[in-house]
Simulated scan of single mutants.
Amino acid sequence: MENEVIFYTYGLCTMFYAMMAWIFWRRGSDKLSRLVMILMMIISISLIKDLFFLHDEMNAKDWNWIMMTAVDMVAEPFYAFILIELCRPGTLSKKMMLCHEAPFVLLPILLYITRIETFYDILVAWSAIYGVYYAIWTLIEIPRYHKILKERFSYEENINLNWLRIIMFSFFAILTLWVVDSVIVNIYIESAYMIGSMVIWMFICSFIYRHESVLSELTVAGTSAKEDMPKDEDINPVDIGIRIEHLMLIQKAYLNPQIKLSDVAKQIGSNRTYVSNWFNRNRQSSFFDYVNDLRVEFACTLLETSDMSLGDISHESGFNSKATFYRLFKKLKGCTPNEFRDKCKTL
């Protein structure tokens, strides 16, 4: 019965990770998709490999178990690579990836050649330090990433990383279970670890698959300054302000739900840096806040003067979703759209 449970669990997880590898291969050739695809392939191969070494008498001191665990750690840097590509798109290089991966490859090789278990202990310690470091790094980077997004985008759907915080804490739970599983070899703990990991990866893959690439909108290290030069180098801040406000207030460009800072810069004949600086200095506001303030004001007009449904008002005002509309409206007006409409009727 126990063998049936573990083989069924391994089979189920192998099929899931293999399917995810195929889905992300089909998704596109962007770096994030390729990283997820490779990680899914590594996990699938690792699971198939483990099936040849599982047996009833295996324990935490068993040589096969130690080698299996050591080899499985090769996948760990790919978790970090995905986090880096999510939080700092475009900064991950092949050289950086090789440097990260080196200790996770060399230590298992040394362990296999010498059979000195000290190498395994070093690998486990390094793996723990590496994992905790990138967990903390990610939690610090997410607010910085969101700040940059607010300077470049007028929407949040499919580009924010709030979901990653929940996933990070879930990973800690899985990591704890993995440590217990590595020390106490038990068929049911192993199954719980496998199923728990798979469920979390279902959510991760779902979010990553919908995640919109923001690489073209973000200024990354090493980008040539010439690529973002203004069309007219003599343009002054006053002219930029006049052009921006004409575009926004007269042409109502904010009603485009997908408008980005680069779109504004292109339409007024400037560049993203100048436009972003104008918002920060002259409006003491991010691009995101400025655009969504205008959208909320437009929605207020519709709520006062029409009987349109809230869904239609949300769409007409330039919001990508009703949830974002409700949240920002309540934040800026201190009441829900329905409450605002009711107040208008009583006046």
Rank of each mutant, 00 (worst) to 15 (best):
D56I: 15
S262N: 11
K330A: 14
S46I: 10
V275P: 02
K260Q: 10
D228H: 11
N160F: 09
M97H: 08
K226E: 11
N3D: 14
K61Y: 12
G318K: 04
I240W: 00
I242V: 05
S197T: 05
F78Q: 05
N158M: 11
E304A: 12
R88K: 14
N59F: 03
C99R: 14
T114E: 07
S213Y: 05
I313E: 03
L332F: 12
K345N: 14
I244M: 05
M96C: 11
P89Y: 11
S154Q: 02
I66C: 04
L249P: 00
F203D: 05
Q284A: 06
G28H: 06
I82H: 00
I313M: 02
D121P: 06
I268M: 00
M40S: 14
D228A: 10
P257E: 08
I167H: 06
N292R: 06
A80K: 04
T9F: 11
R272G: 01
V264A: 01
M248T: 03
K343C: 10
R243M: 01
F169V: 10
A265C: 07
L110I: 09
F153Q: 00
M96S: 14
N236L: 00
K266N: 12
L164W: 04
T9S: 15
S286Q: 02
S314G: 10
K49M: 14
E101R: 08
N158C: 11
Y188L: 09
T91V: 13
L161T: 01
V5Y: 12
M58A: 09
S29W: 06
P77A: 04
M96Y: 13
Q251E: 15
H315T: 09
I242T: 04
T223R: 13
V5G: 02
K61S: 13
N292C: 02
S197I: 00
L218Q: 12
S93L: 07
D312I: 07
K31T: 07
L177Q: 03
L332R: 15
Y17A: 08
A75W: 08
L255S: 06
M37P: 03
F207I: 00
W137I: 01
S182W: 05
I66G: 05
I109C: 12
A102Y: 11
F298K: 06
E245M: 11
I23L: 15
K150G: 04
I235W: 02
E101I: 13
V124A: 04
L302R: 08
N3M: 13
I268L: 00
I313H: 01
L249G: 07
S270K: 00
F52T: 13
F172E: 07
F153L: 09
S317E: 02
G11P: 06
G11A: 09
V264E: 00
I159Q: 07
T273S: 12
W137R: 08
S216V: 08
K260W: 00
K231I: 03
A221K: 12
I174L: 08
V291Y: 00
F81K: 03
E156W: 09
W178M: 10
Y112R: 05
T219N: 12
K31Q: 10
T9K: 05
E227P: 01
T336E: 12
Q284L: 06
